[in-house]
């Protein structure tokens, strides 16, 4: 019953809306072998850098390689953890401070699995996927974000 689909793009243009996230949760109501979901939402932070406030991040990616990496992360997560299904969405283009840019959704019959799996997946995305973020300040100058 594993939801292993062929490789698909995880990228979405612009912010990921709460309607989209809510709808994803709703769609899982028919999958009644699931007993636990876990969700990670990455939100754009209005960082204060030397007195300038980040108003948005403009995301770009090496899309072919990024989709390949997302696919590998997905395969290895299914191998390591007893997951029923898993969904990853990442924004491209402009996402304003306070909006959601990453949505990771894992589901399993049991809760312990989803806690571990979610952390594994999010850390792998941060480390391995070629996504780049241009932090746009309120005065329209910019700097490039680096994951810490």
């Amino acid at each position: 019953m594993k939801d292993k689909k062929p490789m698909k793009s995880v990228f979405k243009e612009g912010a990921i809306t709460s309607e989209f996230i809510g709808n994803s949760i709703y769609k899982h109501q028919t999958k009644t072998s699931i007993g636990a979901h876990n969700i990670f939402l990455g939100q754009v932070r209005a960082d204060d850098i030397d007195g300038k406030i980040v108003s948005a991040i403009e995301y770009t990616a090496y899309e072919d390689m990024a989709n390949q990496k997302f696919h590998e992360i997905r395969e290895s997560a299914f191998e390591k953890f007893d997951l029923t299904c898993m969904h990853i969405y990442h924004s491209l283009g402009t996402v304003k401070a306070g909006e959601i840019c990453l949505f990771v959704f894992v589901s399993s019959p049991r809760r312990k699995v989803v806690f571990e799996a979610l952390e594994y997946i999010v850390e792998a995305i941060k480390a391995d996927v070629p996504v780049f973020g241009k932090e746009i300040f309120e005065d329209e100058s910019h700097q490039w974000k680096v994951n810490s």
């Binding site: 990455g42 995301y59 990616a61 090496y62 390689m65 990024a66 990442h90 840019c101 990453l102 999010v122 995305i125 941060k126 480390a127 391995d128 996927v129 070629p130 996504v131 780049f132 973020g133 490039w144 974000k145 680096v146 994951n147």
Partner: peptide, 10 residues
């Protein structure tokens, strides 16, 4: 060939 600066996903 692609030149990739530090990643900033998520």
């Amino acid at each position: 060939i692609a030149l990739l600066p530090p990643f900033a996903g998520g």
